[in-house]
């Protein structure tokens, strides 16, 4: 068991990010926005997980998703920063 930390740096504070972390056994969901900007700490058993992110980038702003406390990921963390206004989707494979 390891504690990972997921954070969403949302510049301007008006974008959002819905994050799913799952494998064949468990599914965890978390939502980031201006009202809930704090990092999400999650205890996970060792293994491989998929990450799906769906959100909105505010005009002129940016969104950057990062996951720490993991042993590896594809692509590397943090995920590429979103800088184009509007809906965005990102995914990753992480290893705990």
């Amino acid at each position: 068991m390891a504690t990972i930390t997921v954070s969403a740096a949302i510049l301007l504070g008006n974008g959002d990010a819905s994050v799913n972390i799952f494998n064949h056994v468990v599914t965890y969901e978390h939502y980031f926005d201006a009202a809930s900007p704090n990092p999400w700490n999650l205890d996970l058993d060792a293994g491989d997980y998929l990450v799906g992110v769906a959100g909105n980038c505010p005009p002129g702003g940016s969104v950057e998703i990062n996951i720490t406390g993991i042993s590896g990921s594809t692509p590397a963390m943090p995920l590429p920063k979103i800088t184009v206004a509007g809906p965005y989707l990102q995914s990753a494979n992480i290893n705990v």
């Binding site: 959002d16 992110v53 769906a54 909105n56 505010p58």
Partner: peptide, 17 residues
């Protein structure tokens, strides 16, 4: 644009799920 707030957690979660 700093007052711009567009959030849709319900549909985003549906899409992820």
């Amino acid at each position: 644009s700093s007052i711009f707030v567009y959030n849709d957690p319900v549909n985003e979660e549906k899409l992820n799920t």
